[in-house]
């Protein structure tokens, strides 16, 4: 069985691993990505505060993000920055089996982070209030979003700015008490997908929509239905509400602990992905020897 077939068969999501960076469950993260092609890890500022390494270690773990950290004023924003970047580096390091010091978090011009040079993985970062969520995949692109369930009422007020007309109609026809929660899920799925594409909020949310994924074995989404208030899978739709051909993509709404919600957008590219994603085997030794002989090293 080829790697591609394995990836096709196993499109389940591993659980979100709660970690206290930088001493987390790295062997589990490593196993998650090996078996599913995806790893998800989260921390809270509370856990970070408890587990926070000594300052010089934090500075080392920030790598090239250190100047930004140093330029920030003391406070929660700075702590969140430190915690998120340390978590990101540790998760990538665990996924590709190198020390965190070997990982350099670069930023695309859109602001999207990536593991510079290690393009066998794609990463996404989301934080809100107290919680930080990191996603990493070896299958294609990934986008994650995390929000407190309590934000639903606030997000619901933006309904016309975050929904396509069919989505809005479906939400309005649903149970009134679920309306805010459904709108929040829609918003988060769009955030996750936009982040996977690298566009953040520049990608207009009224141009594409989501519908609940059809139950296993049935074909096609139910038109006019809206994503559930609870966790579950979703499919991508156009502005007109019809599902679009996005067979490489999977979308998930998740519940995390402490009243936190998450959304994950995942792309499974059949081409180009490698079974071996270890950082230490990127350079092919036989070719390097043939090119550089004894001059290298």
């Amino acid at each position: 069985m080829s790697g591609t077939e394995r990836a096709e068969r196993k499109r389940g999501l591993p659980p979100v691993r709660m970690v206290g960076a930088p001493w987390g469950v790295w062997d589990v993260v490593s196993k998650d990505i090996r078996t599913t092609g995806v790893a998800l890890a989260a921390t809270t500022l509370g856990r970070w505060a408890e587990d926070r390494p000594v300052e010089p270690r934090v500075r080392t773990l920030l790598g090239r993000d250190l100047p930004r950290y140093t330029a920030m004023e003391d406070g929660v924003v700075r702590e969140r920055f430190a915690a998120s970047r340390v978590l990101l580096r540790c998760v990538v390091a665990a996924a590709i089996g190198v020390p965190p010091g070997g990982v350099d978090i670069g930023y695309h011009l859109s602001g999207r982070p990536y593991a510079r040079g290690y393009d066998q993985v794609d990463i996404s970062l989301s934080h809100t209030g107290d919680i930080i969520l990191v996603g990493v995949t070896s299958r294609g692109r990934i986008g994650v979003d995390v929000e407190p369930a309590g934000r639903a009422a606030e997000v619901a007020e933006l309904d016309r700015h975050i929904c396509t007309p069919p989505e809005l109609a479906a939400v309005n026809e649903g149970p009134a008490e679920e309306r805010p929660a459904r709108l929040l899920r829609i918003w988060m799925l769009k955030e996750a997908y936009s982040k996977a594409l690298g566009q953040g909020l520049r990608f207009s949310f009224t141009e594409f929509g989501f519908a609940p994924a059809p139950p296993r074995g049935s074909r096609g989404a139910v038109r006019g239905d809206t994503v559930a208030a609870g966790p579950g899978a979703a499919v991508l739709c156009g502005r007109d509400g019809a599902p679009v051909d996005a067979s490489a993509w999977r979308f998930h709404s998740l519940d995390l602990e402490g009243g936190m919600l998450a959304a994950v957008a995942l792309q499974y590219l059949p081409t180009g992905s490698s079974e071996d994603i270890r950082g230490g085997t990127v350079v092919n030794r036989a070719t390097a020897r043939a090119i550089w002989g004894t001059r290298a090293g």
Binding site: G101, G102, V103, G106, R285, A296, G297
Partner: peptide, 9 residues
């Protein structure tokens, strides 16, 4: 040096 993970970025 080739084994140094910093070489890739």
């Amino acid at each position: 040096p080739v084994d140094d993970p910093r070489a890739i970025p």
